[in-house]
Measured scan of single mutants.
Amino acid sequence: NQASVVANQLIPINVALTLVMMRSEVVTPVGIPAEDIPRLVSMQVNRAVPLGTTLMPDMVKGYA
């Protein structure tokens, strides 16, 4: 099963993503693939993302 990107903490809106904010985990439904974590660094989410939430492509500005 493919690992997805999961919030490692509350990720506020309009804050640049850092490695420490994200972890990889096998979850259902599948979200952004874990291998895209380096690409996500410095991008921003378009809504607050609670701890443990799977990041979906539509949550990250400029990802999709």
Rank of each mutant, 00 (worst) to 15 (best):
G52R: 04
M21R: 01
R47A: 07
M56C: 05
S4Y: 03
V27H: 03
I11Q: 01
Y63V: 04
T54G: 02
Q44M: 15
A34S: 13
M56Q: 12
V30C: 10
Q9M: 11
A64T: 14
A16S: 11
K61Y: 09
M21H: 07
A34T: 06
A64V: 15
P29R: 04
L10I: 13
V5A: 10
V26M: 08
L17F: 03
V27Y: 03
R39S: 07
M43P: 00
E25G: 11
A64D: 09
V26F: 09
D58F: 15
V6I: 15
V27P: 00
R39Q: 09
G62C: 15
Q2K: 07
L10A: 11
A48Y: 09
N14V: 03
P57T: 06
L51Q: 12
R23K: 10
T54H: 02
Y63K: 04
A7T: 09
M21V: 03
V6E: 01
V30I: 13
V60P: 01
I32K: 00
T54F: 03
V60K: 01
I11T: 00
V49D: 02
I37C: 05
L51K: 12
Q44L: 12
Y63G: 04
L40N: 00
L51T: 13
P33I: 10
E25Q: 10
Y63A: 04
L51M: 15
P57K: 08
S4V: 02
L10Q: 12
M56K: 08
P38L: 10
Q9I: 09
V20L: 13
R39K: 15
E35A: 11
V30G: 09
Q2T: 14
P12V: 04
L17C: 03
V49P: 01
L40W: 03
S24M: 12
Q2S: 13
P33F: 11
S42A: 11
R47G: 05
M56V: 07
S42C: 15
A64K: 14
I37H: 01
A34D: 07
K61V: 10
I37K: 06
Q44A: 13
V27R: 09
Q9A: 13
V45R: 00
L19Q: 09
E35H: 10
N8W: 03
R47F: 07
L51P: 10
G52F: 04
P38I: 09
E25F: 06
L19M: 14
V15P: 00
V41R: 06
V60A: 01
K61N: 12
L17Y: 01
P12E: 12
G31M: 02
A64E: 09
Y63I: 04
M22H: 00
A16M: 15
G62I: 04
I13C: 13
E25A: 14
M56A: 07
D58P: 06
A3E: 14
S42F: 12
L40Q: 00
L51E: 13
M59P: 01
L51W: 14
L10E: 13
P50Y: 10
T54R: 03
E35D: 13
I32H: 01
G62Q: 11
K61Q: 11
M21I: 02
E25W: 08
N8P: 02
M59K: 00
T18V: 05
N46R: 13
P33H: 09
Q9D: 09
I32V: 08
T18P: 00
T18G: 05
T28L: 08
L51G: 09
V49C: 06
I37G: 04
M22A: 00
A3M: 14
D58E: 13
I32Q: 00
I13F: 09
S4G: 05
E35K: 07
T53D: 10
L40D: 02
P12M: 06
R47L: 06
P38G: 11
R23C: 04
P57V: 05
G52I: 03
P38Y: 11
G62D: 13
P50Q: 09
R23S: 06
P33E: 04
V27E: 02
N1E: 15
N46G: 08
V41G: 00
S24H: 10
I37P: 01
N1Y: 15
A64Y: 05
K61F: 09
S42R: 10
R47H: 10
G31Y: 02
L55Q: 01
M59T: 05
V15Y: 15
M59A: 07
V27L: 05
S42V: 03
V45E: 01
V6Y: 02
P38N: 13
Q2A: 09
I37Q: 05
R39A: 10
D36Q: 14
T28W: 07
N14I: 03
P12A: 12
T54N: 00
V15E: 14
P38R: 10
T28Q: 08
